[in-house]
Amino acid sequence: MQPTRRAFLASVLSGTGIAGCLGRVPEPTCPPPVESDGPVRIGFAGDVMLGRNVDETWRDGDPVGVWGSTIDRLRALDGLVLNLECCVSDRGQRTPGRGFYFRAEPEWAVPALDAAGTSVAGLANNHLLDFGPQALRDTVTHLEAAGIATAGAGSDRTAAFTPATVTVGGIEIAVVALTDQAPLYAARGDSPGTAFTTLSTGDPLSKRRVDAALARARERDPDLLVATLHWGPNWEVRPSEGQQRVARWLIDRGVDVVHGHSAHVIQGVETYRGRPIIYDAGDYVDDYLIKEGLHNDRSFLFELVVADGTLRALRLVPVEIDDSAVGAASETAAQWLRERMRTLSGPFGTTVERAGDGLRIPLGEC
């Protein structure tokens, strides 16, 4: 009989499982299968910025329009995890000294997120407090009232580091959201903010905070543990060595999916012990200027396929932003994305297969 995930992760913490002690690389050991009745698809999208021009475009129109031709694909998923890189509020004052301010009107933004089937909105990022603590509180209140779980921000540090737990397709998922961006926005002991930490394996305080958040997630005995990370500098197409160490360390600590974002461009995907590391998912919705050569208007919808109790594959569906909405990528953009992902994932030894207009990365081999 397969052990429960709780028993497996207890062995991790005791030093007898895959993580062992933090100072060494443990022997590869597969976690128990995820229990599910049939194929389940869980989507992961990068930065979703619904403020500024996006807000002006859709606040008086059909909220579903922001998802363009990807809406049917989103609705077909069993769940969706994304980074919401704006606040959702009509209140608050601008935080002084910020170059950009992102805020979306709740009346259209909440229905839009709900229409896409958003299960969890990660709020640990460098724009959630652009309009101060009141807008942060409004964001959490509006989303949770719509049945959209949030993680990565809250009324104090404990709340900010508290994981979200949702059930999609019969699978219970715990999501821990963290950021190493905008220390000014960090939640303190008794003040609102984000789950800020340095995200460095060389920082003992950061490791303790992350470990505590993961422990709280494991208390709920989830089938799948996700770490969604807003990390690293903008416009970098490759993760730093430090980010690679953190991602692998997280999987050693029981994380099943590392979901990175913040660079505004896609980075490579690594499979480590049968688990996917999406170093950066790029931008899914925004109004940003397009950087020459970087094509920050092109990215993927990443779909995790769980079948027969196993993480089977990561499907990469090409998408493209056009005029404050996202849509299926053109043939030219899709070809560019496929070639780019193969190039960026190559150094990790990742198997990348063609799948229609997109790509497929097999998983499950520990």
Rank of each mutant, 00 (worst) to 15 (best):
V257S: 03
T351R: 13
D252V: 04
I42K: 02
A355I: 10
D223A: 13
W249Y: 15
G43S: 07
F348S: 08
N53E: 15
R6A: 15
D223Q: 07
Y279M: 00
L214F: 09
D203Q: 08
A124V: 04
E339C: 09
L84G: 10
Q2M: 14
R137Q: 14
R98H: 14
D283L: 04
I321A: 07
H261G: 10
E292Q: 15
W231L: 07
L74Y: 04
G193C: 01
L311Y: 04
Y288G: 01
A217N: 03
A177D: 14
A212L: 08
G268W: 05
D322Y: 13
P33W: 05
V305F: 10
D138Q: 10
V210F: 00
L337H: 10
N53L: 15
L82N: 10
V48C: 14
H264F: 12
E56I: 05
Q181I: 07
A164F: 02
P32M: 04
T4H: 08
A159S: 08
E172G: 05
V176Q: 03
A7M: 13
G65N: 09
V48M: 12
E144V: 01
N83T: 11
G43H: 09
V305R: 12
H295V: 06
F300P: 01
D280F: 09
A45F: 11
V285H: 12
L205M: 10
N125V: 12
L80Y: 02
F348N: 05
P111N: 06
E339N: 13
R238C: 01
P32T: 00
D55H: 07
P28I: 00
L129M: 14
V305A: 02
A263N: 00
A329T: 04
V285S: 08
V54W: 05
A313N: 06
T70H: 07
V226T: 07
R157H: 02
S89L: 11
F44V: 02
A146G: 12
A124M: 08
L199D: 00
E107P: 09
L129E: 09
